[in-house]
Amino acid sequence: MLEGKVKWFNSEKGFGFIEVEGQDDVFVHFSAIQGEGFKTLEEGQAVSFEIVEGNRGPQAANVTKEA
C-alpha cells in the first residue's frame, strides 16, 4: 500500500488525483474508494491505496481514508 494526499477531487464528476511524494500524481475514480455511503475525498486528505494499470495508465485502487 502507498500513502498520499488528495490533490483535488471533483465529487460531481467522481474523480480526482492523489499526490505521492517522489512520484507522478495518481488518478482516482470514486468507485475505488472503500467504505459505505457517498464516496468522495477532500483536498489534502491523507489516503492509502494501491496502484493498478487502468485503460489510460496507472490509477488508484482500494483507496482508504486515513484517520
Rank of each mutant, 00 (worst) to 15 (best):
G4V: 01
H29N: 03
F38S: 10
K13S: 06
A67G: 14
F49G: 02
P58M: 08
N55R: 05
P58A: 12
Q59A: 10
G57H: 07
M1D: 05
G4E: 01
E36P: 10
F17Y: 10
G35L: 11
Q34S: 15
G57Y: 06
G54V: 07
R56G: 12
E66A: 08
L41R: 01
S11I: 13
E50R: 15
E19R: 09
W8K: 04
S48Q: 15
F30P: 01
N55C: 06
S48E: 06
G14P: 00
Q45R: 08
E3A: 13
H29W: 10
G22H: 09
K5G: 04
I51F: 04
E36Q: 10
A32W: 03
W8S: 04
Q59I: 13
I51Q: 05
L41G: 02
G22K: 09
E43W: 15
R56W: 13
V28R: 00
D24S: 14
V28M: 05
Q45P: 01
Q23V: 10
K7S: 06
T64V: 13
K39N: 07
V52E: 15
E50Y: 14
V63N: 01
D25C: 04
F30H: 13
F30I: 11
E3V: 15
E3M: 12
V26W: 03
F17L: 05
E19Q: 13
E36D: 15
E21V: 15
F30K: 09
K39S: 09
G44F: 08
G35Q: 13
F30W: 07
G16W: 01
E50L: 14
E43H: 11
F49Q: 00
E21H: 09
E19A: 13
E12M: 14
F49M: 05
N62Y: 05
N62I: 07
G22F: 12
F15I: 05
H29P: 03
W8Q: 03
F15M: 15
Q45Y: 06
V28Q: 00
K5I: 11
K65P: 08
E19W: 09
E42C: 07
T40V: 13
A61T: 15
Q59S: 07
E43A: 14
E21A: 08
E50W: 15
N55H: 15
V26Y: 08
G14S: 02
F15A: 03
G44L: 05
Q23W: 13
